[in-house]
Design a protein around this nucleic acid. Structure first.
Lengths: 187, 187
DNA sequence: AAATATACTTACTTACTAGTAAGTATATTT
DNA sequence: AAATATACTTACTAGTAAGTAAGTATATTT
């Protein structure tokens, strides 16, 4: 796998997560990487192919993370999950799901389907972490684990989006709320 | 104010909330309304002008709603707020904030600024409702009202986005979580 | 050494984008 | 009745979009 291909994928992801899928062009990528737009088409024949590859890369990355989770406590798994969003927040990027779901009706169906798979994959995995953490007594909450997972993912996704628009510390505030709501003692 | 102007505003809002600001053109609007693209430019000289007018329309609508709230209990205010999102969910639309914040870095600064104002306006108003509801004993929760308002807005915004991508009842599930978390007895 | 595969560039096409200048029909005001 | 304002259409421009066909330099394989 060439370096250029990786650079295109990474820059494409950045552009999607800061500007949105429909707000960047192959020219944006080729100029920044010092290549011609046809070179981008060489690696990714269509924007649809690039888009799906970027989503797939994100899924692959999560699968790697997930494997590491098996060695961690449920509490550590949740904190590691939150940390993914923390890193995005530090760069003032939204998450891929937040970036793409808002314009999903304008996306090619291959991207829509991959996005659906990604969402369900991540939600299922976080639900699993919550179920196990409850069983082991690491978490304490009354809601259904799946509903709790939906709430956690939703609020993290939005807090990245709203951080870009609002002043104040909404991301930090949301993270605090999440941690309190599963009864984790972090101090 | 002409009917065409209103139709452009409404269709523009629909396009933003289903496809995103960068995924529609004046052609999409003119064709659907049976007019020429120059007619759209007559009412809104630039896409930036159209975009800011759409955000402003949304703010104006919220201000009207807000005035009605003064006659309602805090509980009713919250349910009415949730109902705004319910109506969007019924149409499978995202909210304007969710639709625009994800691509905020690609938007003209006038739109960015108006979006910031809208976010802070709505968040302040919901915080006020929560503070009053707490004081009057209509709500029961331990968190800071502003943090609670952030969590409610975030989770509603995201649940609209994720509804477009995931199967299942995430919107309904999130609404239930919110209602439980302020200790409203709805039954 | 020749053939082939990889990673591009050059040069282009077609289609669409926002935006504009000038003209026209109709309604409203003076 | 004439002047003006409103709400458009016609016809265009300049720029950008995604995408492609054909060529080239370099590395790898046979």
């Amino acid at each position: 796998m060439s370096n250029t291909r990786t650079q295109i994928l990474d820059l494409g992801e950045e552009l999607i997560r800061t500007r949105g899928f429909n707000a960047f062009s192959y020219k944006d990528i080729s100029e920044k990487l010092g290549i011609k737009n046809a070179a981008v088409h060489y690696h990714f024949p269509s924007k649809e192919a690039l888009g799906t590859a970027i989503i797939q890369q994100s899924i692959d990355l999560f699968i790697v993370k997930e494997k590491q989770w098996n060695q961690l406590s449920s509490k550590e798994q949740l904190l590691d999950f939150i940390n993914i969003y923390q890193k995005s927040h530090d760069k003032n990027w939204s998450c891929l799901m937040g970036a793409l779901s808002s314009s999903v009706d304008s996306l090619p169906s291959t991207m829509q389907n991959k996005l659906t798979k990604m969402a369900e994959y991540i939600l299922n995995r976080l639900t699993q972490t919550l179920i196990e953490g409850l069983k082991k007594g690491e978490f304490h909450f009354d809601e259904e684990p799946r509903a709790k997972a939906e709430l956690i993912i939703s609020s993290l996704l939005s807090s990245l989006l709203l951080s870009k628009v609002m002043h104040g510390q909404i991301f930090e505030s949301i993270v605090q709320s999440i941690i309190l709501s599963v009864n984790l003692k972090t101090k």
